[in-house]
């Protein structure tokens, strides 16, 4: 097993390490900024009530995408369609289950109020 790419492989087919390392560093910096931003919203009371919840939710979604893109190397262009479908389908199932559960339990809670 060789560590080198075959000689007949075009240079553009060999990924460049510096590029990949940069991807991890960019991911780390973005994640740090987003995390600190989320905690700052709470620590410094930047927003109140629903606006704070919305801002925190948005920051979390953006950070999850950053992790998927820069740490897990998921990108839209080069993945197989099957794999992307797997991830998107799971996200759909998650949204249905989570929002459905919260909705139904909230509704039940309201009906059980004395």
């Amino acid at each position: 097993m060789s560590n080198r790419a075959p000689a007949n492989l075009p240079a553009s087919d060999i990924e460049d390490e510096g590029h990949e390392r940069r991807s991890y560093v960019i991911g780390l910096v973005l994640a740090l900024v987003l995390t600190t931003g989320a905690f700052a919203v709470v620590w410094f009371d930047l927003f109140s009530g629903a606006a704070a919840l919305a801002a925190l939710g948005l920051l979390a979604v953006v950070q999850a995408v950053v992790h998927l893109r820069y740490f897990l190397h998921i990108d839209l262009q080069r993945s197989h369609r099957d794999d992307l479908l797997l991830i998107l389908f799971t996200v759909l199932i998650l949204l249905i289950m989570v929002s459905g559960t919260i909705w139904i339990l909230y509704d039940q809670h309201m009906r059980m109020m004395p």
Binding site: N3, D13, I14, S79, H80, D83
Partner: peptide
Amino acid sequence: RLHPGINLAGTDP
């Protein structure tokens, strides 16, 4: 990429 995520690409085809 044949699969999503972390890969070996050309270093170990």
